[in-house]
Design a protein around this nucleic acid. Structure first.
Lengths: 215, 215
DNA sequence: TAGATTGTTAATCGATTAACAATC
DNA sequence: TAGATTGTTAATCGATTAACAATC
């Protein structure tokens, strides 16, 4: 029942939020139990994979019966969200940064935005919609001296991210959600990076649309 | 030299934009050639993989010499961008939609934003920063009758995306860049979807920060 | 020619899928 | 008990890595 701790593979971890969405939806609709094959059809995968995935965490089901939605929802949410929210800082409050900050505070569970930073004098001193003030990026280390953030969200250009990276890593931040065109994960091994490169993603889509759907 | 067309695997395609970034940067810095091992170090992978990847497209290098930066830049850009930009529509002009539209028109190559849609009466009639007017989502099919978009970017809630999906697929749109919490790829096989689920990505990061960096 | 480095085939590794015994 | 469905081991599949001949 508890995490077997034998290091769960990244593909499995990345599927957890998707399981969670489908489970929450079924729960909302009053569904009580689900089989691995039903869940597999929703997920677009196989029943085998569903069972393998859940058994990475000890198994959530009952032989002969299936999976109870409530158990699934409870167990997966325990995996995805801990009791303590992750202290998070936002770096870069441009258009994308602001969209992300709204998302972070309004929709995302498990994160707490403790500060936001920008280098532009026009931005500094303003306040985000969520009430968090925008601080001078120069004061980053001073303002985080009392409490080291768990996670930094980077919405700044490539070169700025590159400059800042050693400072952020040096501060002891362990996780990055990276919208910069800069690959933190390559330069700093050992830290956890979730890259969401909008440009890269668009290029990939373009390639596939052109090459996989020949007109 | 030309694409061997034997269906390139998705992992390879997804690495192309990253290769492209590093190659462009080297080109900017006046670097003339690079070896597979140098490129591998930057990418965080092996020289073998670099050579395997490039050979999916016929091979861009010279034995004994390495890869000419100019050749790489030229070949990879040919793979990633075609002569004709992809006609693109944006659906949902909220905070995230607007950030994406700015990105799409200002920074992303290979795409042309032909129209934007929203259902909110306050939004309809306004104009995005890039000059594209916001149309009523009810007029979607009428406005796209003349030219079917290649790609749709969805920045709307889950339920709206679900309602709209059959219409969009029915219109003949082949590619989706999906910021909704709705998994188009599962319900409509055969279409190309690039999912960029901000929430999922955050959940994954949280799991990894908590479990891979035990304090 | 000798050294370097690619292109390409072979080996390994890991993730997915299949099979089946356990059990509700 | 019989049917259903999980947990788990085995087989397959695909992607990554290693090895080496080709060649600049």
């Amino acid at each position: 029942m508890s995490v077997t701790s034998n290091k769960v593979s990244l593909p499995v971890i990345k599927r957890l939020p998707k399981y969670y969405r489908y489970v929450l939806e079924m729960q909302k609709n009053g569904v009580v139990k689900v089989s691995s094959s039903e869940l597999a059809r929703m997920m677009g995968t196989t029943a085998s994979q569903v069972r393998q995935d859940f058994n990475c965490f000890g198994g959530f089901g009952q032989q002969g019966i299936g999976y109870h939605i409530d158990v699934l929802a409870d167990q997966i949410s325990k995996l995805l969200f801990s009791e303590n929210k992750l202290d998070t800082i936002l770096i870069g409050t441009g258009r994308l940064g602001r969209a992300i900050s709204g998302y972070l505070t309004a929709e995302a569970r498990g994160y707490h935005l403790m500060a936001a930073f920008d280098k532009s004098p026009e931005e500094i001193g303003k306040t985000l919609d969520c009430g968090v003030p925008i601080s001078n990026i120069a004061d980053l280390e001073a303002l985080c001296a009392g409490r080291v953030p768990d996670v930094a969200v980077l919405c700044i250009p490539r070169d700025s991210a590159r400059q800042l990276a050693p400072i952020l890593v040096g501060m002891g931040i362990k996780g990055f959600w990276n919208f910069s065109h800069y690959d933190l994960s390559v330069d700093y091994e050992g830290i956890t990076v979730e890259n969401v490169h909008l440009g890269d993603s668009l290029m990939t889509l373009g390639y596939r649309v052109r090459n996989e759907h020949q007109d």
